[in-house]
Amino acid sequence: MLTNDKRITILCGHYGTGKTNVAVNLALAMAKTGENVTVADLDIVNPYFRTLDSATAFDEAGIRLICSRFANTNVDMPSLPPDLYAITDDKTRRVVIDVGGDDSGAMVLGRLAPAILAEGSYEMYLVVNRYRPLTPDVPSTIEVMGEIEVASRLRFTGIVNNSNLGAETTAADVLASVDYAAKLAKAAGLPLVATTVEQSIYSDLEGQIPDLFPLTLQNNKPF
């Protein structure tokens, strides 16, 4: 289950695999069950399309957002939020950590890793999308996975298959990714925690793929 029983859930992966969207949906799903949830946006790589875009939905769901003061501003400032340590200090809240792409993004976790390991209640999921051109197969994904583990000083505990082609994703596209995800999980020696699918095609795939997790795209762009 993507909504696991650990206090901290960390989402890492190759750049552009959809970590932010998974993080937003996971946090909203957790909050729906009445839990106190914090989203920690630690992306120091990409200044665009951030969790902050979902601020209204978070407010309505009572989700607290820890986020760089420079997200969605006019500067590309790879700075960390001042309330960073609330992630590990405030043990009354569940936290979903949205990490920047690749090893360069995962580096920020190194700073939190000792406290996360000491507490011992976390899952770290590798979010994958086989339709991303630099990680189309198992070996290339395993390579990125290893780089992230070195940079973050943490080990992955599961795989989240978020394979998609954006707004054009069909049920067939998702089905065609299942084999890749299964082989990847086997090669990595990790459980395949979930396969995500956009709400509108969820019913087409229900029962065909185990651990299917419905997503609502947090996108209200004018173009």
Binding site: G16, N129, Y131, R132, P133, L165, G166
Partner: peptide
């Protein structure tokens, strides 16, 4: 690479 891939505009420029 006949199959479609999901790319950022910047990446598409580089690969093209």
């Amino acid at each position: 690479m006949a199959e479609k891939v999901l790319m950022k505009g910047n990446e598409a420029i580089a690969e093209a």
